[in-house]
């Protein structure tokens, strides 16, 4: 592997400082700001993991809630028997395996099949889990009682954020990342130059699903009482898609630009107008597709290229006029 370039080192240092300052927050505030920051970090990790797969492939995954719920549920089922870190690992693995199965079934085919399959995946798993629980005669609600508090969740999520950024960066410079860029530009070309497109997509989907599963497991202590309906809440899938698209999925740090404003907006809406949340989510979705088809990131990129072109025109005019 080649050494880091100057700009990579700079981004790395800035990123590390940013994450470190987020991790210091509990020293200053233990109330609303901390809760909000945990939410932001939660969606930063989820959206970035989502964009790892959906960014280059343009396949819209609505399976986030399913993976997230599997992670949460792994913790809920095992909290009395096994230590928490091991359960996070198990949650991640289970989500990864499910992602692999879904990927193998659908990613050989066109993207529509994948969207439809993931649309109902959380609901499917919720039904199966409910059924299994009632067959085994256990109660539907499970308690997760730990001494982990918001600040511990924040630290774990910060760790996950570091992990997902490093993973994304490593993937980008690996053969897999290169293959994904070709697939994203033209799948037929990718197949003709000898890339196993289905395998590449499945691998990336597994990575993305594993991370989301781990996040679901980490957040389990926050809910304390876990039911199938609560754990497999498909709203998470939709929120992740909308935030990632708002930010822009063509850069690793793009989703961040969408997560921060949307989490704050959604927090305000759900506390002031709790009955209007789906309406707001819907309208935000429509607005983004029409007004910001490439996200905030794409908008700024367009602006920059417009300015550059404008400057070139000015220079040419200057030459033309003696």
């Amino acid at each position: 592997m080649r050494l880091l370039s100057a700009s990579e080192t700079r981004i790395g240092v800035i990123g590390a400082l940013g994450l470190a300052s987020v991790a210091m927050l509990p020293l200053l505030d233990q109330g609303y700001t901390l809760t909000l920051t945990v939410n932001i970090m939660l969606y930063v990790v989820l959206c970035t993991a989502w964009a790892l797969f959906s960014g280059p492939t343009h396949y819209i995954s609505l399976a986030t809630a399913a993976f997230y719920g599997l992670g949460t549920y792994a913790v809920a089922l095992g909290i009395d028997i096994l230590p928490f870190p091991l359960l996070v690992l198990i949650g991640a693995l289970v989500a990864g395996v499910v992602a692999g199965l879904v990927g193998v079934a659908t990613l050989r085919l066109s993207g529509v099949y994948f969207v439809i399959f993931t649309l109902g995946l959380a609901e499917l798993i919720r039904q199966v889990v409910t059924w299994l629980q009632s067959e085994m005669g256990s109660s539907l609600g499970l308690y997760v009682l730990t001494d982990l508090r918001e600040q511990h969740l924040l630290w774990m999520l910060t760790g996950m954020a570091a992990l997902v950024y490093v993973a994304g960066w490593l993937i980008n410079r690996s053969r897999l990342g290169f293959a994904m860029r070709i697939i994203g530009n033209d799948e037929t070309v990718a197949r003709h130059v000898g890339i196993d497109t289905a395998l590449a997509k499945v691998v990336l989907f597994i990575i993305s699903g594993t991370i989301i599963g781990a996040v679901g497991a980490i957040l389990a202590p926050r809910y304390s009482y876990i039911t199938p309906t609560g754990a497999f809440n498909s709203m998470i899938s939709f929120q992740v898609v909308i935030m990632a698209l708002l930010g822009g999925v063509h850069r690793l740090w793009g989703p961040l630009l969408g997560v921060i404003p949307f989490t704050i907006l959604f927090d305000q809406v759900s506390s002031r107008f709790p009955n209007h949340t789906s309406l707001v989510v819907g309208l935000a979705f429509i607005a983004i597709v029409y007004l910001l088809p490439r996200g905030v990131l794409g908008f700024f990129a367009d602006l920059a290229s417009l300015r550059r072109r404008f400057r070139i025109v000015l220079v040419e005019d200057g030459k033309a006029v003696p």
Binding site: V241, S278, L279, V280, G282, A287
Partner: peptide, 25 residues
């Protein structure tokens, strides 16, 4: 066609939420 597919999925998705929210209200 692929671009239209992604865009239409996202917009009708938004419509789905907007209509659902309206009907709930």
């Amino acid at each position: 066609r692929g671009q239209l597919e992604v865009d239409s999925i996202l917009v009708t998705f938004g419509l789905m939420f907007a209509f659902q929210g309206l009907m709930l209200l």
